[in-house]
Design a protein around this nucleic acid. Structure first.
Lengths: 211, 211
DNA sequence: GCTTGAATGGACTATTTAGACCAAACTTAG
DNA sequence: CTAAGTTTGGTCTAAATAGTCCATTCAAGC
């Protein structure tokens, strides 16, 4: 029984580094396909082809398509949250928030608004059909919301925003503007509506600025 | 050649009232299924069953699934736009806008946020896979946006909003807040985030109120 | 180098789904 | 009534898709 370099797998089975490598190649390919084609429009054969794997590898690592979907939600959540955390980390002023806005709009305009938000799109497609997916995505999106709330709290604590600014509500509103911006941008194939939506949210936040 | 009561069909073929009745039963059933399950997750057999029709009826009225999808986009667009027009028609004040907000939130809370926006959800699922669907949905969503712009213009003209309030941008922002609210509400299974998002947008609009 | 379990390649099956087809029933103009 | 086209029920085919299986290879501990 080989032990040394093995790693405990998700479902009790041991995994070797080579297996884990394959597994993550599958998940990454699936994540990309889900993002550009949608979850239901992506077949396992698409995934197999994109990841250069075989059927047996797919089913060695994932019981069925739903389990793969959950794995994708997991890595995609980690990826998006890490990216957004990185983007928000240094924001301490209203100018910082505007720069954050610019980053989002620029990234979105690079693909002409296409594909929308990876988490938002999966949520729209899966929330009402698979409760487990909904809950996982809900946890991630709420973590994202809390990141915005923390950023706004930080800005307020620094005395830039007045006491009556409510970071909870402003954070939720800001995330909604962003998500709505993604939807409209994807539909219009232009990042313009996202820019307008974020500007509105930021203008509103700025209305709480201390004079 | 029977003529009298026939009606010109979409693709040149003549249709009788009975046929048109069947056709709309198919489209209505498909629209409902697309709304609750999503487009790709709905099979033609689902549609056949829900509309109590046979395969031959489906293919008598629609060349293939894509044509059916376009037909659904068409009726769903008309339905949503008519409903929203009706909801916005009488709005002439800020209080009216708040009442409009209440209607949306209440309707959304009746289904615990589920299903989101019929047009927005289809757009997210179809925009990057079928250009024709994207364009049709884009036309409808933009008509919706213009309805909001007109409402805000009306309110401004009445002297309730100041001259520097830009109905174009405010309307886009308002629609984005609504769409983002739908996304978050569907994900959270609660209409709460939609309420917060709309409140933010309306607070912002109200900041342009004449004193 | 032998053994053992993980990993792999690929063929194979089962099921689902889209779509074609046809004969019978219906509808209506003439 | 009759003819011509429409509508319908149902069956049948083709393709796509999910999922199974097994013989072989690989990697590591002994």
């Amino acid at each position: 029984m080989p032990e040394g370099d093995t790693v405990p797998g998700t479902s009790g089975t041991r995994r070797t580094p080579r297996g884990l490598e394959t597994r993550s190649r599958i998940v990454d390919s699936a994540a990309k396909l889900f993002y550009v084609k949608g979850v239901n429009a992506t077949t396992l054969d698409d995934v197999r082809l994109a990841s250069s794997t075989s059927k047996s590898q797919l089913y060695n690592h994932f019981e069925d398509k739903l389990v793969l979907i959950h794995a994708v939600i997991d890595v995609q959540s980690k990826f998006v949250l890490a990216r957004e955390e990185q983007r928000l980390r240094g924001v301490k002023t209203l100018t910082g928030l505007r720069r954050w806005r610019d980053t989002l709009v620029q990234a979105n305009s690079l693909q002409d608004g296409s594909y929308g938000c990876a988490l938002g799109a999966m949520s729209v497609e899966l929330s009402d059909n698979d409760e487990q997916s909904r809950q996982a995505l809900n946890a991630s999106i709420d973590a994202w919301r809390r990141m915005l709330v923390e950023t706004l709290t930080r800005v307020r604590v620094l005395g830039i925003l007045a006491e009556d600014a409510d970071p909870q509500r402003l954070g939720t509103g800001l995330l909604a503007a962003l998500q709505g911006g993604y939807v409209l941008a994807q539909n219009a194939h232009s990042s313009e509506p996202m820019a307008v939506a974020l500007d509105m949210a930021l203008d509103h936040i700025e209305s709480f600025a201390r004079s």
